[in-house]
C-alpha cells in the first residue's frame, strides 16, 4: 500500500515527472539556442520562470467567469499528470497498467487542448478568442491521424495497453520497422498537439499576441506552462513506449534506455521547431487531412492485414 503510494507520488510518478519535465524543457530551449548559434539559457531557467510566475499577482478579467477561469489550468495539469501514470518508465513497468490505457492516455492528453480552447473562449478577448478557435480547428486536424498512428501498433500487437504493446514488440524487435510511417506521423501530430513550430498558429505571438492564454497571468499561467512541458514529457514517454520498445530486462538499464529514447524524441521535435517556419492554420489543416490521414489509414489497413497474414 505505502509502496504504491510512494510510486505514484515520488518515482516514477509526480516528483519524477516534475523534475524530468524541467530537464526536458531546459534541453528543448538549450538545443534550440545552440541551433541558432547562441549560448542559450542557464540550466535553472525553467525553475526560475516557474517560481517567478508563481510569485506574480493573478489578474482576473472582469467579464470572464471567475470559477471556470481559475479551474481550467488545474484541470489541464491534472489530466496530463494522470496520463503519465500509464507510461512505462522503469523497464516495462508503469505505475498502473490496464487493457485500454493507451486510449485513456490519448483522451487525457486531449483535455489540455480543450482547456486551452475554453480558457481562450472564456477570457472574452479578441485575440484569445481567435487563438481559442485556432486551437480547436487544429485539434480537428491532428486528432484523427494522431489516434490512427498510435492505434496501428496496438492493432498489430493485439493489445490496447502501452505496457502490453511494449512487451509484444520487445519480444519481436523487427516488427517495429512496420510501424515506421506511424512513428513519423506520431512525431508530427505530437508537435501539432503541443502547438510548437511549424504548427504554432494557435499561439502565434507575432500575429495574435499569444493565443488563448492572453489574459492569463501569475500562477495560472504557471500551471498552463507546467501543463505544456509535462505534456511534452508524456508524449515523449508514450512514443518511446509504443514505437521504440527496446528493453534489456534489467530495470536500471531499461530506465537509462528510457532516458535515451525520450531525449532522442525531444531532440527530433526541437529539430522540427528550429528548422521550420510557422505555417498558416489552413495549410496545417490541408497537410493533416490530405497527406497524413491517408498514410495513417494505409498503415492501419496494412497492420490489420499483417495481423491476419503473419498468423499472430
Amino acid at each position: 500500500m505505502i509502496a504504491s503510494i510512494l510510486k505514484v507520488l515520488l518515482f516514477p510518478g509526480l516528483l519524477f515527472l516534475g523534475v524530468y519535465s524541467f530537464v526536458l524543457e531546459f534541453v528543448d530551449r538549450k538545443v534550440y539556442a545552440r541551433m541558432q548559434n547562441r549560448k542559450g539559457p542557464p540550466w535553472y531557467q525553467p525553475l526560475a520562470d516557474m517560481l517567478k510566475l508563481v510569485g506574480k499577482k493573478v489578474i482576473l478579467p472582469n467579464n470572464a467567469q471567475k470559477f471556470v477561469f481559475a479551474a481550467l489550468p488545474t484541470v489541464s495539469l491534472t489530466a496530463v499528470v494522470t496520463a503519465f501514470l500509464c507510461a512505462p518508465v522503469w523497464g516495462m513497468q508503469a505505475v498502473t497498467a490496464y487493457e485500454g490505457d493507451l486510449v485513456a492516455v490519448l483522451y487525457l492528453l486531449s483535455i489540455p487542448t480543450l482547456c486551452h480552447f475554453l480558457a481562450g473562449y472564456n477570457s472574452h478577448e479578441v485575440y484569445s478568442t481567435i487563438g481559442a478557435f485556432r486551437t480547436l480547428t487544429q485539434m480537428f486536424a491532428y486528432e484523427v491521424p494522431l489516434f490512427m498512428a498510435f492505434l496501428s501498433p496496438a492493432i498489430l500487437a493485439g493489445s490496447w495497453s502501452i505496457t502490453g504493446i511494449a512487451a509484444f514488440y520487445a519480444a519481436r524487435p523487427l516488427y517495429v520497422l512496420i510501424n515506421l510511417p506511424a512513428f513519423l506521423i506520431a512525431l508530427l501530430t505530437s508537435q501539432s498537439k503541443l502547438e510548437r513550430a511549424p504548427f504554432d498558429a494557435p499561439e502565434a505571438e507575432t500575429e495574435i499576441v499569444g493565443g488563448a492564454l492572453v489574459e492569463y497571468s501569475g500562477r495560472y499561467l504557471a500551471y498552463f506552462r507546467a501543463t505544456a512541458v509535462s505534456e511534452l514529457t508524456v508524449m515523449a514517454s508514450v512514443i518511446a513506449g509504443v514505437f521504440l520498445p527496446f528493453f534489456t530486462g534489467n530495470g536500471a538499464v531499461d530506465f537509462a534506455l528510457y532516458l535515451v529514447k525520450t531525449f532522442a524524441v525531444v531532440l527530433v521535435m526541437v529539430l522540427l521547431r528550429a528548422t521550420m517556419a510557422r505555417i498558416r492554420i489552413d495549410q496545417t489543416l490541408k497537410f493533416f487531412w490530405s497527406v497524413l490521414t491517408p498514410v495513417a489509414i494505409a498503415q492501419m489497413i496494412l497492420n490489420l492485414l499483417l495481423r491476419g497474414g503473419l498468423g499472430l
Binding site: N37, R38, Y127, I208, S217
Partner: peptide
C-alpha cells in the same frame, strides 16, 4: 536577435502585457 542572445540572462519577449515583467 541571436547575435546578442538575451535568453542567456533569462530574458524572453512576450506578446501579452499580462505575461511580461
Amino acid at each position: 536577435t541571436p547575435q546578442y542572445d538575451l535568453e542567456r540572462l533569462g530574458i524572453l519577449q512576450q506578446g501579452s502585457p499580462r505575461h511580461a515583467d
